[in-house]
Design a protein around this nucleic acid. Structure first.
Lengths: 161, 161
DNA sequence: TGAGTAGGTAGTGATTCGCAACTTAAAAAA
DNA sequence: TTTTTTAAGTTGCGAATCACTACCTACTCA
């Protein structure tokens, strides 16, 4: 991929994120991992991905610290790929994309669905919230440079001391 | 791209979403659109993308209804690409991915940042919330099939009638 | 009418992709 | 112990996609 102009490359997490997740299969492999798959052959037969591409993508995800690669102690041929903390942190992005696909492409809810273990109720739609918890649409927001942002005035209760 | 096995292909919005957004440049073009860019040359000079690839991606995003293509009335050479409702709905996914990149790749906040127009405070981190608003981590959730989910018992106030 | 500009196409070589066949090392079976 | 099976890759090859440069075509403006 060509290089971005500096001001769009250095200061935004998106190109950085795409460095590891910008390839088509990466998301699907990761989704399978979130669904509890751990082994090469599981990914391969479930996704129908070519073996060399799968090997390449798993390697890349491991290189980026998104998956951890570990031979199983009881059968050292078996390699377990499991999500790292960094990989697990991609869940909101994955879900947001999946939910978008449900609403705007397939028109139906996906299965299976993530539920809160506590009460088995489905999670909310991923959305954008203001600092005080209101849901925001694109029209409710604008772009500011970091230095333009004023710290929030807190109710000064324990302040002065 | 090869075809997925049916049970992973038909019932999930993610592969559907990747059909339009699975290519590397798509996210970056869309980010530029969210940042207020509207014209071919703006995208080209800002992103440094090859012209034919840009033309191809813009066309594809238009085909998928994510961008709308409209010649400007005052100068009909000029074409305006603007986000459709469907395109704007990708913002949570884009932000989630960008925030992930900030935390796990660049290690610094991106600029510019989205703020609530009302109070100019930055938005919250995109996260996963339970139906009643608690923030959930991966360990707090599990997968269920749709038919296994029981409707939530509501406090029966106006129920019986 | 001629110059400039916005938005694209065309040609070309490098890279990536998907498929099938092969490899390697460990485990299980005989 | 030898043979077979299995998990996880690697290799080779043709097809598709990519990026780079140059060219093209409307339309506008002087």
């Amino acid at each position: 991929m060509g290089e971005l102009k500096e001001d769009l490359c250095l200061d935004c997490g998106l190109p950085a994120a795409l460095e590891s997740m910008g390839e088509r299969w990466s998301f699907l492999i990761l989704r399978a991992a979130f669904n509890g798959l751990h082994h090469f052959e599981e990914f391969q037969s479930t996704l129908g991905i070519a073996r060399n591409i799968l090997a390449n993508r798993l390697g890349r995800l491991v290189d980026h610290g998104i998956l951890a690669r570990e031979p199983m102690p009881d059968d050292r041929r078996k390699i377990e790929y499991r999500l790292t903390e960094k990989g697990a942190a991609l869940l909101p992005a994955m879900l947001a994309l999946r939910q978008w696909g449900e609403v705007w492409e397939t028109g139906m809810p996906s299965t299976p669905v993530l539920v809160d273990t506590r009460d088995e109720q489905p999670i909310r739609k991923v959305s954008i919230l203001s600092h005080d918890g209101r849901e925001l649409q694109l029209g409710d927001m604008c772009w500011k440079h970091t230095h333009e942002i004023k710290p929030l005035e807190m109710p000064r209760l324990q302040a002065v001391a």
